[in-house]
Design a binder for these strands. Structure first.
Lengths: 167, 167
DNA sequence: CCTAGTAGGCAACTCGGTTGACCACATGCA
DNA sequence: TGCATGTGGTCAACCGAGTTGCCTACTAGG
């Protein structure tokens, strides 16, 4: 590393330009995600990727979901979803059993192991959130949450927010 | 699409669980990013990816940056950075000229075309930000920005924030 | 001056997606 | 009832953006 000559980058300070908030959002999420992944590694968890977490969350909330449902929710093709499902099944996080109303389909369900993972992940996210709360205060955090939810409501209306990851 | 039986998902509402704010962050950024990409496509721009934007931003702020500097900043290998640089050079967004102090290296610099793109991108991000401001109010947006900056300062201290994308 | 280190590029590979083709079952309708 | 059309799921080939490994050219410090 070396040469790049640092100029007085106007990246922080009160006199900021508009249009930086989206980037700040991304950086903050990135920071929390890094923290999350670090803690996960510390705890000796498998190399599960964010998409897996979203998968678990979806399956926990929707009974008898199919691979195609999942694909739609994640915003990927059914083939990609199928691969992920096979992998997660192999690792014992979910099971596929005959679908009660469609003999072509498999109904997906989390195993206990899958639910355990989800709970642990929720806890880790809560830790990251808590750290932010300690910096800015619980009241400010609640305000931020409300502001984020307002934006999402505005953007997606009543429809279910596509939970697919930013990767 | 079909079967997935929707349960009363506790994903919104005031009585929310802790640990969801990081996800909200990701979803909000995702929404803004989708909007950004949509507008970019409308304007007939090339298939530039987020990483390219970060590259432009870095080159605009650091004179005589090398490929290795860029790689470090983006958090990728120098080979990957090298590929991206070659691509962007081919498209006329940046130039490589002999480095003034190191004959092994190339000093990277944005072309006018590159600067144009950056300005346009900044404007599009500002649009997305503005949309949020219209939903929650300019004062709340400013508060959110301050809260995000506080978290990033807390996390990265004085060191430069790794601007690498969430992809 | 010689050695250790660094900028950069080439090649082979990985990984998580994609498109395309296909089969099995489902559904609507004449 | 039978059939056309649609949909769940899988296999296979491919793609893009990253990776590791290896090499050369130049730098810089004893």
């Amino acid at each position: 590393m070396s040469a790049a000559h640092d100029e007085p980058k106007p990246t922080n300070g009160p006199g900021d330009l508009p249009g930086q908030v989206p980037l700040l959002l991304a950086m903050a999420f990135r920071a929390m995600n890094d923290r999350f992944l670090g803690r996960l590694a510390e705890l000796g968890r498998e190399p599960l990727r964010p998409a897996h977490g979203y998968t678990f969350r979806y399956l926990a909330a929707h009974t008898d979901a199919t691979t195609v449902d999942l694909a739609a929710h994640l915003g990927i093709t059914k083939q990609a979803a199928s691969k992920a499902v096979a992998e997660l099944e192999g690792w014992g996080y979910l099971t596929r059993h005959p679908h009660p109303r469609d003999r072509r389909a498999h109904a997906l369900a989390l195993t206990g192991r899958g639910r355990d993972y989800l709970h642990q992940a929720d806890q880790l996210w809560a830790e990251a959130e808590q750290e932010w709360a300690e910096v800015i205060g619980a009241d400010r955090l609640a305000a931020v949450r409300a502001d984020l939810e307002a934006y999402l409501r505005h953007t997606y209306g009543g429809t279910e927010v596509p939970l697919r990851p930013v990767w």
